[in-house]
């Protein structure tokens, strides 16, 4: 598994554990008390490192190639998943998956960005960057869920909507805009979960919900730290500064009231334990489905509208004397 520079103490510690194990096996001696103590120390170290990640380190964790993706969660937390395909207009975008699923005996429609685990799969999944047909497929499935009165759960995990010629020709902006408008009007509960990368409009395109939740080490931002650094500092290597400035961590988003809840990740990040990550996500989904179950379609629409209506930080004066008046 890929490890990060900031995990170096952890990696060295794990090496020590492995060495001790190998030695014990060879020498046929019992080292279990020593091993237990070393493992305790490793867990402590891991917890410490992950509790103190910088914003940019979180971005790296959110992009970890072993991180669970949408279909991993589906496999680990749902039964009877029936994938549905196509936008009925142009193509089936494999960077966006969706279909019927059952979670703890409840029927839902689940939609999410899908990244690939290796190069071959990434070519198919376009690194989780959807084209307009992906957003149109997502909306088709959401409207279907609305007609069937099934709650919608979306999994957000994309560097962004794909910036390409075909995407522009087929109206990437229009596809996302229409989703933003139409998601407001759906009469079923919508729960959106940022499981990895929340890349700007491409994330928001399936991200308008009654609840927006985010995993502990996921991020959500208007632009990638690299892109921000290139524009702002004319230097894409100053991505750590940019990540700090963008306030893109789960913890920042909670403080702004953009997300309702942070879903904790397993020790050392979701990529270290898919099963546990899925259990934690499942638990959050069920809790929020319960909370929303009593709301009528109109109440759901109203709650969702007011949630977005309230976002914005500004001040309003009766008049301003200290500034030049508009001409």
């Amino acid at each position: 598994m890929i490890t990060f520079d900031f995990e170096k103490p952890l990696v060295e510690h794990e090496k020590k554990i492995a060495e001790l194990r190998a030695y014990a096996k060879e020498a046929h001696i019992d080292v279990s008390p020593e091993l237990a103590s070393l493992e305790r120390k490793r867990d402590q170290l891991c917890a410490e490192i992950y509790a103190n990640l910088t914003p940019y380190q979180k971005v790296l964790v959110a992009r970890h190639p072993n991180r669970p993706y949408t279909l991993d969660y589906v496999r680990l937390m749902c039964q009877d998943f029936l994938e549905l395909h196509g936008d009925r207009r142009f193509a089936d975008d494999l960077a966006m998956v969706g279909g019927f699923a059952t979670i703890a005996g409840r029927r839902i429609v689940l939609i999410g960005h899908q990244k690939g685990r290796d190069t071959k799969e990434n070519l198919k999944r376009n690194f989780g960057m959807a084209h307009p047909e992906g957003y149109r497929k997502a909306l088709r499935l959401m409207e279907l869920a609305d007609r069937c009165r099934l709650p919608i759960v979306t999994f957000i995990d994309t560097p962004g909507a794909y910036p390409g010629i075909g995407a522009e020709e087929r109206g990437q902006a229009e596809a996302i805009a229409v989703n933003l408008r139409e998601m407001i009007g759906l009469g079923v509960p919508i729960i959106c979960i940022v499981i990895g990368e929340g890349g700007s409009g491409g994330a928001l395109g399936i991200g308008v919900g009654n609840r927006v939740l985010i995993l502990e080490h996921a991020y959500y931002s208007v632009i990638s730290p690299e892109g921000c650094a290139a524009i702002l500092f004319h230097d894409s290597s100053r991505n750590q500064e940019a990540a700090n400035a963008l306030k893109l961590t789960a913890q920042d988003l909670l403080s702004f009231g953009i997300v309702e809840e942070i879903i904790p990740e397993p020790l050392g990040g979701a990529h270290r334990n898919h099963e546990q990550a899925a259990a934690l996500v499942k638990d959050a989904i069920l809790r929020h489905l319960d909370q929303l179950a009593s709301l009528s379609p109109d109440q759901l629409r109203e709650q969702r509208y007011q949630k977005y209506r309230a976002v914005g930080v500004f001040t309003e004066a009766q008049q301003l004397l200290a500034h030049p008046a508009p001409s």
Binding site: R181, E182, G201, L204, L232
Partner: peptide, 24 residues
């Protein structure tokens, strides 16, 4: 979207589109 307001700016896309839903 104005980068200097990051996620709060991004959410203005949803806010304005929501109002357009009602207008429609």
């Amino acid at each position: 979207v104005r980068m200097q307001e990051s996620i709060i700016g991004l959410m203005q896309m949803a806010k304005t589109s929501a109002a357009l839903y009602r207008l429609r």
